[in-house]
Design a protein around this nucleic acid. Structure first.
Length: 835
RNA sequence: GCCUCCAUAGCCCAAUGGCAGAGGCAGACGACUUAAAAUCGUCAAAGUGUGGGUUCGAGUCCCACUGGAGGCACCA
């Protein structure tokens, strides 16, 4: 065998699989991302990825999320921070239970098998997690503190039980929070959600509505504006007034909420929610025909689901209750109707109807032939007054009050203030506000969740489980019927349900419902501070040092639910003196979804891309790099549009440059090739701000640019021994370690360094290398480029102006036009404006 | 119905109000090779969805429209 024919040695070949195998055990030993070392003086930073639900192995969506979270986390490690980047599993919940029912297994086994699988995939994926900080919400050591949290809320009066019409999923056979009903469908199984009257546990999130809304302002600029606007929308604060109406034949007045108290003189009837207690009472005291008509109507209303109820073209229906309310400002008798267009659980479940100035009231008045009285004069574009009483539509804008006694002649906004004063003075109303947000329904009639730590006693009523008896362990699933049947499977665990009352000792029963898993995830970021503590949920001092989370990374699917609940719980814990901050997540990045062929991946669509296959085919680094390079992180990635093979090709190209560096490891860079040094340092200047601004795709492009310059230098006159070549190659290895840790580590070793490129800091850019002595200035005429010339960077404005004015090309462009203005931006540009 | 966001080469995407191109994919051509792959190199390709406006100057700011994505919705 001759020298020329020698096969390529492994040393010159970028062997992805071998590199991955090589570095995993080294990192296990090195543990570069441990954050709890005593005496660690580095400044702290808390970077958190939303923890996964263990529903199988990791998928492409996880791969994107963790690739991007890792870029941020590794960036701060490299900047010299003590970064806490933990991981856990949100492991209670319905999928485990449903899988268990389907296969006749214990949900526990299924869950923990999946966790083991995901954990091993995360290790292979080179996630920079601190493996000393791991939690699993279905572990008793976690949910014990979930129960603690519940009791803290309970003792503060923020957890309570009430009977009301709740959202019910007939397929999951459990109640749902408002937030889990999407377009009238169950967010999990897409069944049509119905209503059911049940006694359920709630957290009083409405007590915090104002703060949850107002504090969003403090997140402006650090959270995606989309999420802020979604949360504002969801909380939905309206300002208006409560107005009291006397009811004929009833001692108590009825209060209504309105955002338009100025239109009070235009009220021609009142409407109460058909499914409210008030409607039933008013009907019951009316004559028998009305009573039976009401009962019939109510029956119809109860049978309709949200899909029908929300249809926009649905005609208005209702029943005249034969009762009358008295308008507090003019003593008029207003007929009272019951209808389903008024909601029982918003405001007071009753409204004053002003058909002239409200779309829904207008439709109802037309349908029921009720009077319409115009009290706000609004002119059309021709200056003619629009009168809804004789027209086809109500007017809802601003105008001048008419037919309104003391309000006549006032503008809408002034009238709102004036009427509020009048009502307040007479004790018949006051300014107030209302929220779209409802209290958080947290009980579920399912098995695989945190048992609610309450005991129901015939003598004592609700009795909290004493702290020293926590956790209330979930009974074994063995022998329990997990099939959904409308009541909790825990009811079947008789040994577990029947206990002595902790207060009086008589036979009592445990609460058999479990908690919504969103309770588990509403505070998990605090548990990472001491994931194994038996003493506390989280240590207050550690929370002061580490929390709030500096950078949170996750999908926009949680823009309302999870983030709102976590914000709420944080505020409560703040008020209980456990935390010194009020917002849990200082900065938020929402990554997009990974699509395939234009739509979300799903088995039924047949467009599923298996992460494990992508990793086998292209390697971990190529997949990670593709996730970062595809585009802005918040945009969706269509896997059909991107090229992991191209990423792999680039990584091999970068890797080879390390092979080609022939200078000693301690060479002084100062003597290196000036052009390449300039490329390296302009990269160093740009890279950090790009990463901090989440412009990962641009950051990767800059690395590619540097690699191209480096390749040219190696193959060109500078050669492999040039000091700048080493400087550039080391810079590439360090920067690449955020995106492609295996390749970067291997480059680092080839460059003669000891393993641990993740901890190697990128140097500051030497700006003196970037100073240009000359620059190409452009001369424009009316904004169009007409000439260019090389000028000194410190050319004076007048010199540059003279240079431009004397250019032949410029003179030609001006022609015989008159020069109106000359803008000079030395040293870059002159623009000559002509008349 | 109300409220956000988006639109740049065939494709994915860059561009502090100042020469539309940083980077990549796909493509063409060349070098290397007996040949191919790999590698290295060169090239071609949009005037920024449409119509107005502000400005010395607009992809960028404002208005309207078209198309697309998302959120809220009988919330008084």
């Amino acid at each position: 065998m001759t020298e020329q024919n020698a096969p390529e040695t492994a040393e010159n070949e970028y062997d992805v699989a071998a590199i991955q195998e090589k570095w995993l055990p080294v990192w296990d030993e090195l543990r570069p991302f441990a954050s709890g070392k005593p005496g660690d003086e580095r400044p702290k930073k808390y970077v958190l990825d939303m923890f996964p639900y263990p529903s199988g192995d990791l998928h492409m969506g996880h791969a994107e999320a963790y690739a991007l979270g890792d870029v941020i986390s590794r960036y701060w490690v490299q900047k010299g921070f003590n970064v806490m980047h933990p991981i856990g599993w949100d492991s209670f919940g319905l999928p485990a239970e449903n899988a268990a029912i389907k296969r006749g297994l214990d949900p526990k086994g299924w869950t923990y098998d999946n966790i083991a699988q995901q954990k091993s995939s995360m290790r292979r994926y080179a996630c920079s997690f601190d493996w000393d900080r791991v939690l699993v919400t279905s572990d008793p050591s976690y949910y014990r503190w979930n129960q603690w949290l519940f009791l803290e809320f309970y003792n503060k009066g923020l957890a309570y039980r009430k009977n009301s019409n709740v959202n019910w999923c007939p397929s999951c056979q459990t109640v749902l929070a408002n937030e889990q009903v999407v377009q009238g469908l169950c967010e999990r199984c897409d069944s049509v959600v119905t209503k059911k009257a049940l006694t359920q546990w709630y957290f009083k999130v409405t007590d915090y509505a104002d703060r949850l809304l107002d504090d969003l302002d403090t997140l402006e600029g650090n959270w995606p504006s989309k999420v802020l606007s979604m949360q504002r929308n969801w909380i939905g604060r309206s300002h208006g007034a409560d107005v009291q109406f006397e009811i004929e034949g009833r001692t108590e007045p009825v209060t209504v909420f309105t955002t338009r108290p100025d239109t009070l003189f235009g009220a021609t009837f009142m409407v109460v929610a058909a499914d409210s207690a008030l409607a039933a009472e008013l009907a019951a005291d009316s004559n028998p025909e009305i009573q039976s008509a009401f009962v019939k109507y109510l029956e119809m209303v109860k049978q309709s689901n949200d899909i029908e109820r929300l249809a926009t073209d649905r005609p208005k229906t209702g029943v005249d209750l034969g009762r009358f309310a008295i308008n507090p400002v003019n003593g008029e008798k207003l007929p009272i109707w019951a209808s389903d267009y008024v909601l029982a659980d918003y405001g007071h479940g009753a409204i004053m109807a002003v058909p002239a100035h409200d779309q829904r009231d207008f439709e109802f008045a037309k349908a029921m032939n009720l009077p319409i009285r115009t009290v706000v004069d609004i002119k059309d574009e021709n200056g003619v007054s629009i009168d809804p009483a004789v027209g086809e539509a109500p007017t809802t804008g601003s105008g001048t009050l008419i037919n309104s006694g003391p309000l006549d002649g006032l503008a809408k906004d002034v009238a709102i203030e004036k009427i509020a004063e009048i009502l307040q003075a007479e004790g018949k109303g006051k300014k107030t506000k209302n929220f779209r947000l409802r209290d958080w329904l947290i009980s579920r009639q399912r098995y695989w969740g945190t048992p609610i730590p309450i005991i129901h006693c015939g003598n004592c009523g609700e009795v909290p489980v004493p702290a020293d008896q926590l956790p209330v362990l979930l009974p074994s699933a063995e022998g329990l019927d997990l099939k959904p049947k409308g009541t909790s499977p825990l009811g079947g665990a008789e040994d577990w349900v029947n206990v002595a009352c902790p207060k009086c000792g008589i036979a009592a029963k445990r609460d058999t419902d479990t908690m919504d898993t969103f309770v588990d995830s509403s505070w998990y970021f605090l548990r990472f501070l001491s994931p194994n503590s038996d003493e506390v949920a989280f240590p207050v001092e550690e929370a002061k040092a580490w929390a709030p989370v500096d950078q949170y990374v996750g999908g926009v699917t949680h823009a309302i639910l999870h983030l709102l609940y976590a914000r709420f719980v944080t505020k409560v814990l703040h008020d209980l003196d456990y935390l010194d901050f009020e917002e849990p997540f200082t900065r938020l990045l929402n990554q997009g979804m990974v699509l395939m062929g234009g739509s979300a991946m799903s088995k039924s669509r047949g467009n599923l891309v298996a992460l494990s296959e992508q990793l086998d085919e292209h390697g971990v680094d190529a997949v990670r790099l593709t996730m970062s390079f595809a585009g802005p992180p918040e945009d969706d990635i269509d896997w059909a549009d991107v090229s992991p093979a191209g990423s792999a090709k680039f990584l091999a190209r970068a890797w080879r440059t390390a092979n080609d560096v022939s200078s000693p490891v301690d060479i002084d860079f100062v003597a290196g090739n000036a052009e390449l040094r300039k490329a390296t340092h302009s990269f160093l200047r740009d890279f950090g701000p790009l990463i901090e601004g989440f412009k990962f795709n641009v950051g990767v492009a800059k690395i590619m640019e540097l690699v191209n310059a480096l390749r040219k230098a190696i193959d060109g006159p500078a050669g492999s021994g040039d000091a700048a070549v080493r400087e550039a190659a080391e810079t590439v290895a360090k920067a690449l370690s955020l995106f492609a840790p295996y390749t970067a580590e291997d480059m680092w070793q080839k460059l003669g360094h000891t393993p641990g490129v993740a901890l190697a800091e990128l140097p500051e850019a030497d700006l003196s290398l970037l100073v240009e002595s000359s620059i190409v200035a452009i001369a424009q005429v009316d904004g169009k480029v007409r000439d260019k010339f090389e000028v000194s960077v410190d050319i004076s404005e007048s010199d540059l102006r003279d240079l431009a004015m004397s250019s032949e090309a410029v003179k030609k462009a001006i022609g015989d036009k008159q020069v109106a203005n000359v803008i000079v931006r030395a040293p870059k540009l002159v623009n000559i404006a002509t008349k």
